[in-house]
Design a protein around this nucleic acid. Structure first.
Lengths: 253, 253
DNA sequence: CGTTATGTTGACCTCCTTCAAAGGCTGTGG
DNA sequence: CCACAGCCTTTGAAGGAGGTCAACATAACG
């Protein structure tokens, strides 16, 4: 009843620790019934077209999960009975490479939807891992499929969401897989919102490398060089401040 | 009423020659009303769920276009009033890079749909160019949107088509933008169906490079090396025969 | 305070890009 | 029919960018 990586049912998939992830960071915690009507990202996500009353009807089968950093939300080739809306945190979608390493093909942020392939296929196409503590709503595929058929607004936002996913993937090709390592890293930093006002914690060098299609060492070297040039100021531990203009210049390649 | 690249209406977009394309290969030829009921790829594409009668109703606004090799079907940022189903040939979706060159983000083959962003956005996200003589059906977005709402089968195949697009983009990241030039080229050849039974004419070295994120020269060198090793036999001018197993080995990286 | 992940840096070498030139194929015009 | 032009491909040589392997530093954690 499940993918090759896990003998247990799909329900347990988020609790399984893949060997490549440290064992202590494996469990997604169940928080409880979702309260979509008070959810901050409600308007961004799938159900923005629903009235409060309609929401109540579908709330029951939706669970709210806390996904600790490095925990696995679902794994490639596993059965896909759910889709997930990201409420907070960042989810990375990874694909395993034949040489053993892995490539990150997409980052999902609050308002994005993970595992949408569940709506047309019965298996997941990536492995989804929380890059930092995340909060997601787990929605049975049938709920989405039913709403998609009965509610035009949901249907429309689903299409938009799908196109958005395509755009993200294309952007990953153009911005993160093209040009010199410096240009890719600059684009990655811009993409992470580092160049904007609100600065967040950066991913590890390994993850940056997996995103930009370069090695961890090169990612580290480029970041160090950026710091020396004053393009990034790492306010020890907490925030990161970037020179947006300078990075944009480098991003041009 | 149109994108910045063309002062004329969207109707003329396929007739416009961008400066980077040779002037003689610019026009998409109008063939006539589409005959979906006898179309070979009908079952593969959007309208597979429609009865012959339903088809008749929507045929009127659909035109069948012949797109000569190197002709531009539509351009990035232009208004997008149509989607296109590919009946024959291969369409490449390109994105212009800041340095002036361009990256091919996807190849569309018979049965694929081009310009689906038209359904949720009013501008095209790529430039679509025929890699070889192609045959496409041009469908007004409103037709698809209406069918999508009224016909569950069309709606379902639309979702599948969208997910398929995402998968293609992801595959482009993983297969064509990761690993050594040799591995990428091997994966590209496999992807082009060269390793299969029916062999087709290959793209130019320049296009191969744009697909794999490497230079034209490197693409040429790798291809020449493959020939020397006997992995590809270029039956002068016509077909290409490949050693599927050998290429698959190299593709692993 | 030792232990373990993660980040940084160095040295070396491979692969790819860059620049340049020569060969091959095609279409055109004399 | 041949010559020539133009484009694509091939190949060479040189240099640089990034990969690899290894050592070390730093930070996180019990």
């Amino acid at each position: 009843m499940d993918g090759p990586a896990s003998p247990a049912g799909p329900e347990e998939s988020v609790f399984m620790a893949p060997h490549r992830i440290k064992p202590y960071c494996t469990q997604a915690e169940w928080v409880g019934r979702a309260k979509c009507s008070v959810c901050d990202v409600r308007n961004l996500v799938l159900f923005s077209g629903l009235s409060a009353h309609e929401l109540d009807d579908i709330l029951l089968p939706i669970d709210n999960l806390r996904v600790p950093q490095h925990a696995v939300l679902y794994e490639q080739n596993q059965l896909a009975p759910f889709v997930y809306t990201v409420r907070s945190g960042i989810i990375k979608l990874c694909v395993d490479l034949p040489n053993g390493s892995q490539r990150i093909v997409r980052l999902l942020r609050p308002g994005d939807v993970a595992g949408m392939e569940a709506l047309v296929d019965d298996r997941h196409h990536h492995t989804a891992i929380a890059m930092r503590d995340a909060d997601v709503c787990r929605i049975p595929r049938e709920v989405v499929l039913r709403l998609d058929q009965t509610n035009p607004a949901v249907h429309r936002s689903l299409m938009q969401r799908w196109q958005c996913t395509v755009d993200q993937a294309d952007h990953c090709i153009v911005a993160l897989s093209t040009g010199s390592a410096e240009a890719r890293m600059a684009r990655l930093l811009i993409m992470l919102g580092c160049a904007g006002s609100h600065t967040e914690l950066l991913p590890s060098r390994e993850e940056m490398g997996a995103l930009a299609g370069i090695t961890t060492e090169t990612a580290s070297r480029v970041m160090a060089e950026f710091k020396r040039r004053g393009l990034i100021h790492s306010h020890k531990g907490s925030d990161v401040v970037c020179d947006a203009a300078g990075l944009a210049e480098i991003a041009k390649g």
